[in-house]
Design a protein around this nucleic acid. Structure first.
Lengths: 242, 242
DNA sequence: TAGTGGTCTAGACCACAGA
DNA sequence: CTGTGGTCTAGACCACTAC
């Protein structure tokens, strides 16, 4: 048992690995709560919490009176809980690929009414106004327009923007992200979209509007990400609770 | 305390109502776990579970050492957990409005390879092949192409299709929905889209591809819903766990 | 030091399914 | 009947914050 980790998340990790390594047969129930609790020397409640993590990831489902089963389609790749299970930036999502960011626009301004409402700030609160194009290899993927209060995220630089803003916020500033709210819609491409995403006037755009909150309950980012329609799919897993 | 409901979900409901009715000040912590547990005569664990429900709904956030706070933006309407928190059909989402469904196509066929893979069935398993246009008032909203195994959902009729398939499945057949997997993307309109959604060739389409699973772990629905871009927004709430 | 939420325990009772 | 998961309890200890 490693330090600095809760028991249930350690157990969840271990069982997740077993599932992904096919150490449990796919066509029958995995061991029961009681026997797993015995194996891991924990209480039944803790084991339940560990398994709950995997249920919410879409890897397991449980049925009273029957047992706990592996969701086979989750093993086949495809439907992995990538996009909506973690609040992370673009950089993390495309881990391993050659991701670059080009800063098109970066200044400090005062917010308009929309941004004031989204970030819950007054018109006198200075914000960063950032426009970036994100590239994978040589190809443009997404045009991101981001607004963040300067006082919350001090010391933003061109270098940070070209790398990972989220890494800076979490590792350098030590802030914790608590939640995000996204709205996804389709739109026609603007001239800006066409210019930077290299798309045609008849190509749709898929837009993700996002507000991200810190642990403290304050909104720190409002952003509009406009993606090429041929290079973006948003995945959502949904588990009925109770 | 009503029958037929768990204690924690009853408590969550009660506290949710208090929040929405502004019975707790927005700018300070709501009562602590311990005091709420005393008020509702429950253990601290049960109260924690009740509050956890509201955290996952995006209504509350909690901070160790500080307390439990209301997420104000959730009260302002806008960011309500409508679309992704419940696995429900179109009928329920637009509750109260005049929703109509017109069945364009309804027959039993054998699945192609894509549908076989999505529903995890063989080419000899008969399925319903359903094409419906959903209207709100006089306006077309979404064109839904749905595939369901006949053996799982027996007795499908034109009348059911014109009303709510989900209600039929849950109330008439007594089946329980466990989870769903969605992929959201933008696309150009096909001729079918243009004909039924009354959209122009340059209007984008937003497509939701969905597989829905029953309690038993079997997939019962694979569908492609194509929405008018000016009448559909997909909302996602995301809470960091741990 | 006191108060908050987070984790963990050992055990109880219940609902549901299959033999 | 046994075995499964779901709920609930009463209490413990810990981590974090504020005073």
């Amino acid at each position: 048992m490693p330090q600095n980790q809760t028991k249930y998340s350690y157990i969840a990790e271990e069982i997740r690995n077993r599932i992904l390594n096919h150490q449990y047969p796919e066509n029958q129930a995995i061991p029961s709560e009681v026997s797993l609790a015995k194996e891991f020397s924990c209480s039944r409640m803790t084991m339940k919490k560990a398994l709950e993590v995997l249920v919410l990831e879409g890897l397991l489902y449980r049925k009273r009176g029957h047992g706990t089963f592996i969701i086979k389609s989750a093993l086949r790749g495809e439907q992995l809980p990538i996009y909506n299970q973690e609040v992370s930036g673009f950089t993390k999502l495309l881990n391993g690929k050659n991701v670059q960011s080009e800063v098109i626009h970066f200044e400090v301004i005062f917010p308009d009414e929309t941004v004031q409402a989204k970030l819950n700030i007054t018109s006198e609160t200075p914000i960063y106004d950032i426009l970036r194009i994100r590239m994978v290899g040589d190809e443009p993927y997404v045009l991101e327009h981001t607004f963040m209060p300067v006082t919350l995220i001090p010391g933003m630089t061109q270098t940070v923007l070209e790398n990972s803003v989220y890494r800076y916020i979490q590792e350098e500033l030590g802030l914790r992200i608590a939640s995000s709210y996204k709205q996804i819609r389709a739109d026609k491409p603007s001239e800006l979209d066409q210019k930077y995403l290299l798309c045609k006037a008849e190509d749709p755009i898929i837009e993700v509007e996002q507000t991200v909150y810190l642990n403290s309950g304050t909104a720190f980012e409002y952003s509009l990400s406009r993606h090429r329609y041929d290079k973006f799919v948003f995945k959502v897993i949904n588990v009925v609770r109770g």
